[in-house]
Design a protein around this nucleic acid. Sequence first.
DNA 1: TCGATAGGATGATGGTCGTCATCCTCATTG
DNA 2: CAATGAGGATGACGACCATCATCCTATCGA
Lengths: 210, 210
Amino acid sequence: MMVVILIVNSVSGDGAAMGHSQTDKAKSRQRILGVASERLRGEGLEGPGVAEIMQAAGLTHGGFYKHFGSRDELVAESLAATFDEQAAATREALATSDDPLGAFAARYTAAEHCAHPEQGCAVAALASEVARTDGPVRATYTERIAAYIQEVDALLATAGVEAGDDGARREEAVARYAMLVGGLILARAVDDPALREELLATVGERAAQR
Amino acid sequence: MMVVILIVNSVSGDGAAMGHSQTDKAKSRQRILGVASERLRGEGLEGPGVAEIMQAAGLTHGGFYKHFGSRDELVAESLAATFDEQAAATREALATSDDPLGAFAARYTAAEHCAHPEQGCAVAALASEVARTDGPVRATYTERIAAYIQEVDALLATAGVEAGDDGARREEAVARYAMLVGGLILARAVDDPALREELLATVGERAAQR
DNA sequence: TCGATAGGATGATGGTCGTCATCCTCATTG
DNA sequence: CAATGAGGATGACGACCATCATCCTATCGA
């Protein structure tokens, strides 16, 4: 007996078959970066596998290396892009506020932010894991943490705090930023809603104080 | 043809062959817990494999399940034990100090502590990963974070801070603890020694203030 | 319009890891 | 002192993962 297997060239009508044009590739790349950004923050630096990320981006795992040289490369690019997006979103959100410092603190300590690390601050989501790495990711974090501190310093300035010869405002900025990040991380680690809300509220109020 | 394989009973003279007595088992268990404690803090919740931990404890991977039902069980027990040890060590270190609050803050923000997460505070080392788990580890963290905050509150009390009708001292304790944890995590994430030291120094001084 | 280039899919490979079955050896108990 | 129970070692299994070879096919330049 002879068995003939015919594989008909089904252009699977269900999925939006990925195109092959340059703009399609750029879109694919952006989707991969976006998915990676969320998954990394939500599941950790080593959480999502290449296959999972590609599937969530509507692709299969094999094509990954047409876009990135390695998983590490994707992680580095994705987190750098995440910081850029978040900085832009923050700037936009604070632009219209008459109390930018308070708005910043409220945003950061919002219950929504606490409940959704995959869409929130990449520092709070991944800091303790980044501390164990070396290379571009850690370097990016160093830059962005420094930038965050300067941002808080600027917000304190707009709130009327004098710089001070002894760098008092800079100290204040460092302390408030550390408190915000620590408070958010602790609130997320904690099981008890009451303690979580206490952490967020306390830290948020104190960071907003003028 | 017949092949006969003779396996001579070599009692490998090199290694300190583990005993089989009950006290030996207890010692093995303690070694496993101790190794796991360091590796988990140093490499993350999912860092060290069972085989790595057992080897570092002077054993082979197979015997692991004579001690623990699963890797998760080891993780939970190990971290609970770690908190106990650290609480005892802290209590001892602060007992003789005439400025317990300052000593606590100095200990926590010491360069030594920052450089060796594998021997330091399990909260700072693993908080952002614990936030992604559920079950006993997260429950333990919740308890211990609450205890840490109460500890800081007690230290503030010995420093002469009044409780206040509005819970001002409790707020102060929450804020200072969040700042300490956040500062340490950020200092570890950061690549630049100057920024790292600034974070530790600023946060340490402010947490010690009376 | 045709051929080269490259995006995407499929499948394989080598490595790692948690878990467990099995066996050997010793401590323990009667 | 013999028999039983258990600690520990060896090896294997299945799952998962990053990476890459290969093929198909659509785009794009000539």
